[in-house]
């Protein structure tokens, strides 16, 4: 039924999320019916995970937690301040602790 498989480059693009919408639709439709290409995309996603592990971390902005109000509205997000704010980086009013 499937005459042509997308190129590795397209499958990598699907895993990386860098395809434009048209290509994403075409590749997505193919993936629905092709286990072989799905396996390739999942392999490229694993490479994406390895990329995330190896990337040089960025500094998180100290003021980022100004958005805490919005984040705390998320269902299930811990609302109350813990006894020791420094032990919990995501509720400190001064922002997240920078990676050491």
């Amino acid at each position: 039924m499937i005459a042509h498989h997308p190129s590795d480059e397209l499958l990598l693009g699907a895993a990386a999320g860098t395809l434009d919408v048209g290509a994403a639709i075409v590749v997505g439709a193919h993936l629905e019916g092709c286990a072989r290409c799905r396996a390739s995309v999942h392999a490229f996603e694993s490479a994406g995970g390895a990329m995330l592990e190896s990337i040089e971390p960025a500094l998180m902005a100290p003021e980022a937690l100004a958005r805490r109000a919005r984040i705390s509205q998320v269902a299930g997000w811990p609302r109350q301040r813990p006894p020791k704010p420094s032990a919990c980086i995501f509720v400190r009013s001064s922002g997240p602790r920078l990676p050491s």
């Binding site: 990329m51 995330l52 990337i55 971390p57 960025a58 811990p78 990676p99």
Partner: peptide
């Protein structure tokens, strides 16, 4: 939460960098 804090500290700066 402390487990999450470790995850945050590990991943958030990497996700931002990506």
């Amino acid at each position: 939460r402390s487990a999450f804090a470790v995850l945050f500290k590990h991943f958030a700066p990497r996700v931002k960098a990506y």
